[in-house]
Design a protein around this nucleic acid. Structure first.
Lengths: 347, 347
DNA sequence: CTGTTAGCGCTTTCAC
DNA sequence: GTGAAAGCGCTAACAG
């Protein structure tokens, strides 16, 4: 038990009375090996409880069977679901998943990339804090590690990405509100430096503007307090008849604040949020939201990465075109009560 | 860009005109090295963009600077928060975190342990699907990898654990309900094979029994449907005046079902749930819950692991007693409206 | 089919 | 202070 050095390939070879090559072949699929020898070696492996040392393998220039996932936070439901999906795919490819978080801080992000690269991960899945980050792009490219961007693209690079169509999602949602007859649709959010939020803002703007309606936008929501303050201010000055919140937490803050200041939804003001959440259907009124294909995003990002990994070197990019590289997934408008729609009786 | 081999220590040595020993010393803290040489080497490292190859290092018998986290699911808010906390601690110790999921399936769990061990992780944090799992215990012990159990202990083993006091949490919550004057307190949950759930059930039972009240227990809640059916059945037969739900999803299902079948909370029936969630405070009525110190659990588990890692070998278990090994953290009863308490006006 | 052997990049005695 | 050299466990020619 103490410092129990695990057995090495050489010991297995001795035990089985064969050379190291043979053992190596056995643990790598067992081709080109005499069935009898194969059985003998396999037995020795079992008896000794031998497990190949990945460090030695990767030293020989092999893959490490590990990939890295770099996300803002694991505690965020969106990214944890992505992570879960990615982990599933990784497992299917017998790979392990390193998870690191960035808090959307470019410094931590770059640092994560470097650490992961230095650990020789086979590939990287990353949700860039800043889609324009030149340094990140450069680091990734010079490292030569296959990478795919998640939720947010890494612009001006050849890195594949998988994301939701934020513009369309927000655009359609706004149009839905317009269809309800609302004329003064306010948009609230925080973190407007993020690619996704920006896209959603554009989608909102495009919709209201092309309908000849005013743009009422506030991007300063950080917490419950700022949400309530902003709401009061807006109610007073802009007199919105509908509110479109661009992110989960903002939706919740707004809902809570509306409740607190006795504004009834949707009678006084309609509410529509970006991103679904479990209780959106349970609270009263239930909240209409734009739902993103979260699991799909995580799954596809991982799949693209592994497909990339498998074609690397193999057919020297000949069939590269066969692998989708820029994926933009659609969103769904889940109609519930808060926008003024009558909800179905059951789910 | 193609197969851009990263620079090696030898190249750094040549570039700096020194031997490999010196470079090695520099990247390991730079002690015993002449300041001038040190600067020269550091410069060469910077120029070349050199990063030590962890594979080569770990081949020399060193640690791998990686730890593994084995949890039922990353998408579960409880475990994702633990994971986030653990990842933070890992980062502080310059280690990377492998995350794998088990779905509470002992087979997947064992497999995860094996894979992680074969990857030579320095340590393991694990939430055992089954606290009695002999095979898991044996594997962990024979592998000789330091491990710490999270949220659920691994019984009959010397493996440290960090968990919440589920018995006390449920016990106090039930007593709170009793204090409100409820006499027929029903307890609902699913997954009653889990250690945590069992403890909570015991806590509930102990409280009602010692108050001379009936045990009304249903452990078959799997989804909204079963929650609603069970509720109707109970309402009809057991006529409970309060409901204590032992896990997050059950709480939500019960709340939703109660709503749907027009039972008002807390007037007709009180509701109290185990585990807090963001909207528990926002829904009407707001839901009284037992809150667990989630982040603390993840953080402490990781800290214990690293402390273990650091003392290993060093002082040959002399001061081992200084490291806490069995940690049971307290829970908090968050009083809101659903139990009959009057909620404070603001948070 | 199978054994021998030369490293992969790094740490670490052991000399100088 | 610093360098030379011996491996750590494994794979991949290259012979047989």
């Amino acid at each position: 038990m103490r410092k129990s050095k695990s057995p090495t390939l050489i010991e297995v070879a001795k035990r089985a009375g064969v050379g190291t090559t043979t053992v190596s072949r056995v643990i790598n699929g067992g081709n080109l090996v005499d069935p009898a020898t194969l059985a003998r070696v396999r037995n020795a492996i079992k008896v000794l409880g031998y497990m190949p040392n990945p460090a030695a393998r990767s030293l020989k220039g092999y893959h490490t069977k590990t990939i890295g996932l770099i996300i803002p936070s694991i505690a965020d439901p969106f990214f944890s679901s992505c992570a879960e999906a990615a982990q599933e795919i990784a497992r299917a490819h017998e790979s392990l998943l390193f998870v690191t978080t960035t808090q959307n801080d470019p410094r931590l992000e770059l640092e994560s990339v470097k650490v992961l690269v230095s650990h020789r991960v086979d590939g990287l899945i990353i949700a860039p804090a800043n889609s324009e980050n030149t340094e990140l792009r450069a680091t990734l490219e010079s490292a030569g590690v296959p990478a795919v961007a998640l939720d947010r693209p890494l612009l001006h690079s050849s890195i594949p990405y998988v994301l939701a169509d934020n513009f369309a999602g927000a655009n359609l949602a706004t149009q839905h509100l317009i269809g309800h007859g609302y004329r003064r649709i306010a948009c609230m959010t925080g973190e407007d430096t993020l690619y996704t939020i920006r896209e959603r803002i554009s989608g909102y703007k495009q919709a209201v503007e092309s309908a000849g309606l005013p743009v009422i936008l506030n991007t300063t929501i950080r917490d419950y307090g700022s949400a309530e303050a902003t709401l009061k201010y807006m109610l007073d000055r802009d007199k919105p008849d509908a509110i479109f919140t661009l992110k989960n937490s903002t939706t919740i803050y707004a809902f809570e604040a509306l409740n607190r200041i006795n504004v009834s939804v949707p009678q006084d003001i309609a509410l529509l949020g970006y991103d679904d959440f479990e209780l959106a259907d349970t609270v009263r009124p239930s909240i209409t939201v734009v739902r993103q294909p979260i699991v799909e995003i995580g799954r596809m990002a991982a799949e693209i990465l592994f497909r990339e990994l498998m074609t690397r070197g193999k057919m020297d990019r000949e069939f590269e075109a066969a692998v989708p590289r820029q994926v933009q997934l659609g969103t769904t408008l889940v109609r519930r009560n808060s926008c003024g729609c009558v909800a179905p009786l059951f789910h």
